[in-house]
Structures are given as C-alpha cells and as structure tokens.
Simulated assay, not measured.
Amino acid sequence: MPALVHGLRPLGLAMSLLAVPTRSYSAPPPKESAAAAQLPSSFRWSSSGQLISPKPDASHSVVSVKDPTVVQANGKWHLFMTTANTAGSWSLAYTSFTPQSWSAPRTFQNAAPSGTLDYWTICDSAMCYLFSADDNGHVYRSETTAGEFPGGFRNTRLVLQDSKFALFEGGAVYRVQGTNTYLLLWEAIGGDGRRYHRSFTAQGLTGQWQPLAATEANPFARATNVTFPSGAWTRDISHGELVRAGNDQTMTINPCRLQFLYQGLNPSAGGDYSQLPYRLGLLTQTNSSC
C-alpha cells in the first residue's frame, strides 16, 4: 500500500490485512447460537512487527503514529491515524487514496459530559449510538435516530463504570455477525503501567454490558496473551480497531480469526506523551473456535 501521506512508512500493512482468507468474510452469516459461541472466553494472539511508522524527511518531523481507524471499500484499505511531531502538535493522517471532498460542518452533539473523548459511532436499523470515554473510569452512550444522523445525539447515559485506569479510553463497539450480540472493547492501564484492552458483550446496543475477557489476568489483548514471532517490539497493546467484515454503519465483525490493528511502542521509551514513538501493528487471533 503506497504511503500518500508524507512522513509515513507503511511497511506492508495491506499484505498483513489481506492475509485473512477472503472466504472467511463471504460465508453465510452463522446462526445466533453458533456465532455467539465463536467468541471465546479468553483470547490468544500473534502480532506482526511494526507496520506503520514515521519516515522523517526535510519537511516533516513526525515522531508518532497512533489511534488507527481502518476500513475496506472499493478494493482498497483506507487508514486514518493520529500523528504527533517534535513540537508536540497533533494531526490527522490518511493513507490509501487522496480524499475528494468533505461536506459542510454540522453540530454533532449539543452537550456531552465534561472531558469526553475517543468517540465511537455504531448503528442498527433504526438508531445510531455514540460511545465515549472520559479518562476517569466512565463509558457513556448517546443516541440519535438513523434519519437524524449525523446530528441530534442526546440522552447521554453512563453504561459502564470502574476505576480510572480500568476503563480509560480508546473504546470500540462491534456487532457479531449473524447475531444480536455486541462486543465492546475498552483500553485500560495495567498495574505495570502498560496499556491493554478489556472486552464486554451485550444483547443489543442498549443491553447490559457483561464482562467477557475483562481482567489483567484474562484480558482481550495484552502483551501477556500475545506472541511476537518477529520479536517483542512493544509491551503495550494500546488504542486500536478490529478489522471489520464490511464497511457499513453496523460495524459488523466476523468472529472467526479476528484481527486487531493497534498502537504499540518500544518498551524503553519515555518522556512527554506527545513524543512517545508509537507505531502500528496487527494482532491475528490464534485460538478461534470457528
């Protein structure tokens, strides 16, 4: 995949994403009970090496790439990410093709809890829901009708609560293909100071979230349940996104052999947060029950 954003080195991301056989995403949707059983109660992963990293040149000083969002459409992978430079300034980067145009700005949400960030939108046939974090142990959900989207989010409510670092930021919500089961992932900070992901499930987007793999001992994704065939380049499995089965607003995943695009960094890195040398890597599930 060519890097069309200056200062980025893609390092074979497209090949890694396409490594999952196409047939696994074209199979008929599984029955409710079968598909739900395909989400194990514990997960094992294998990680790639660094796939996206900064490429310094005369006009750019990017030190970090993070917070990936990836989707496949029209035969291409479209990747958005956050970048930081040596001055501590944040930017949005994109690779795969040149964007053609943007619509005029609209008000997305009139009111939100103080300090919320890392917004995630997912819809069913009638409603759209906005999930967000506040870096203080709270997960919020707002809603609007599909017809009003992308505006009108209201009825904000607290849907999960824990200690500050147990529900920190970087959340995502997906529908499990062929079911009414939804999977919520949330980034946490472990007792060792390293980032990892917890997981919860609910029946329906307004259902009660129940822990799936949600502890430091049994996480969704943490360095302790990931192997690194090319060498352990990170101990943080931070802010990421599952590769979806399609590209519509239902955020549907096929539960067979999940892949998770995430940010990690050299374990010895330190200093100001904006200067941490985050890179992007890809986890592939190795214990699928399919």
Rank of each mutant, 00 (worst) to 15 (best):
2 P>M: 14
7 G>H: 02
7 G>K: 01
11 L>E: 03
17 L>M: 09
18 L>K: 10
22 T>D: 12
26 S>A: 08
27 A>S: 08
28 P>R: 09
30 P>G: 15
35 A>H: 07
37 A>K: 15
37 A>G: 10
38 Q>I: 06
40 P>S: 03
47 S>L: 02
48 S>V: 14
49 G>A: 14
49 G>S: 15
52 I>G: 13
53 S>P: 02
56 P>K: 02
71 V>F: 12
73 A>M: 07
81 M>R: 00
83 T>F: 01
86 T>G: 02
91 S>A: 07
92 L>I: 15
92 L>K: 12
101 S>A: 14
101 S>G: 15
102 W>C: 11
105 P>N: 15
116 T>N: 11
116 T>R: 09
120 W>I: 08
124 D>E: 07
124 D>W: 01
126 A>L: 11
129 Y>E: 04
132 S>A: 14
134 D>Y: 01
135 D>A: 13
138 H>W: 02
145 T>W: 14
156 T>C: 09
159 V>A: 00
159 V>E: 00
161 Q>L: 02
166 A>G: 03
166 A>P: 02
170 G>Q: 12
170 G>I: 15
174 Y>Q: 09
182 Y>I: 07
183 L>M: 10
188 A>Q: 05
188 A>E: 09
190 G>A: 07
202 A>D: 05
208 Q>Y: 14
219 P>E: 09
228 F>E: 09
229 P>E: 01
232 A>K: 05
233 W>R: 07
234 T>S: 13
235 R>C: 10
239 H>Q: 14
239 H>L: 06
253 I>E: 08
258 L>F: 02
267 P>F: 11
268 S>Q: 06
271 G>I: 08
279 R>Y: 07
286 T>K: 05
288 S>H: 12
290 C>I: 09
